[in-house]
């Protein structure tokens, strides 16, 4: 039962990846692209958690935590760049 559920969940998250990626390519302005990147890294965390459940290994959470921290810093940096024209003043 858990196997089937995990396969359905993999399909849903992959579709979510596809939608975010289409917005990343299409996005008319820069904030849309930043938002699409933000969504992509959150989707990557979801996929890593599902992989950890599928392979029954707790090794994936360090990678998920690292992606969370790096993605947050990247989003803040890009938004700050749009806001001030400079990241560190």
């Amino acid at each position: 039962m858990l196997e089937t559920t995990l396969l359905i969940a993999f399909a849903c998250v992959s579709l979510a990846f596809l939608f975010s990626f289409m917005r990343l390519i299409k996005g008319p302005d820069l904030p849309d692209r930043i938002l699409a990147l933000d969504t992509l890294y959150i989707n990557a965390i979801a996929l890593l958690v599902l992989l950890g459940l599928y392979f029954q290994s707790a090794l994936y959470f360090e990678a998920a935590l690292l992606i969370a921290v790096m993605g947050f810093v990247a989003t803040i940096g890009l938004s700050k760049y749009l806001l001030r024209g400079d990241i560190m003043e």
Partner: peptide
């Protein structure tokens, strides 16, 4: 319970990205 939580999570992830698109 585990399956319900996983399906809920995957569904809401999909809804969020669909809204973004």
């Amino acid at each position: 319970i585990l399956s319900a939580l996983i399906l809920l999570g995957a569904f809401f992830t999909l809804v969020g990205s669909f809204g973004l698109y």
